[in-house]
Design a protein around this nucleic acid. Sequence first.
DNA 1: GGCCCTATATATAACAG
DNA 2: TCTGTTATATATAGGGC
Lengths: 78, 78
Amino acid sequence: MGRGKIEIKRIENASNRQVTYSKRKNGIIKKAKEITVLCDAQVSLVIFASSGRMHEYCSPSTTYVVPVYFFLICLGLL
Amino acid sequence: MGRGKIEIKRIENASNRQVTYSKRKNGIIKKAKEITVLCDAQVSLVIFASSGRMHEYCSPSTTYVVPVYFFLICLGLL
DNA sequence: GGCCCTATATATAACAG
DNA sequence: TCTGTTATATATAGGGC
């Protein structure tokens, strides 16, 4: 989606990787907010950059419920 | 992004809402996978449909780490 | 419910400052 | 780095099966 087509593989140039991370992170968070409103869904999203920085979005009703489910799912208990 | 422009507000027609949910859920999960590969990031994502159905994506390294952070973040402890 | 199709809205890669 | 621009790749609305 841009001036050129890119392959979905690790971006080796650290600077480009950071720029792409920042833009796509914003894009995903925007999409998460949209599906929440459009479809009456609940979304929780956490993204860790390789730099160690973290970003997250929790739709209001998920604040308490989703993390608990999430925790259990990821541990293989659900 | 389609034949017509839509406002970002709840889709009242339940059938349309479900179709849009399904399509956008797939889109967000695809984006989550892409940023994981492109940017060496880690993503964890949980989506609840209003129907109660749930969908999730955890990039490999986040399986254990992110849910714990997520849990703490959402509880306001981080 | 899911999958295909196509026109169109959007996201974003590459670049400039 | 961050912000803005713009051409182009993608996502998706609406429709049919």
